[in-house]
Amino acid sequence: MALPAQLRSIQHHLRTAQEHENRDPVVAYYCRLYAMQTGMKLDSKTPECRKFLVKLMDQLESMKQELGDNDSISQEVVGNAHIENYALKMFLYADNEDRAGRFHKNMIKSFYTASLLLDVLSVFGELSEENIQHRKYARWKATYVHNCLKTGETPV
């Protein structure tokens, strides 16, 4: 179903969920949970948004059925650790590539996906100051390196 324009700020989280559908269903579940909670705050009034959110909720409930016995889904603290570890693993991969001077689409995507997953961490509560910094740095780096590669500059 097409994403209504009012909900565009959750489109990348939903795409990350699709990318992880088979690779890591727990990541997919929490990306959709974040998108659901954020979407309801953005706009659950207009008919097209409500329709979209009802479909997303249906998807979440059926994922919950499938994954219910997984501790990362049934226990928030385990889920929190799962998402945080995964986000930091992506961040560290991208950071290592960056420090080694290897600039490419994969490292850009890893920085960006790490920043999206740090957004998702907020479903478990306030982000730590460290994660807020990580998220800011990862999003900035992804944008900076992407623009450099686009203009042919060598990122510093």
Binding site: L33, M36, Q37, M40, S44, K45, P47, R50, L53, V54, M57, L60, E61, K64, G68, I73, S74, Q75, E76, G79
Partner: peptide, 27 residues
Amino acid sequence: TGSVGTSVASAEQDELSSRLAKLRDQM
């Protein structure tokens, strides 16, 4: 139709909120 539409909308919103709360409670 305006008021009916609004009450349908808020009923659906309430239903979404309670489904979300239920999903999270089961976690």
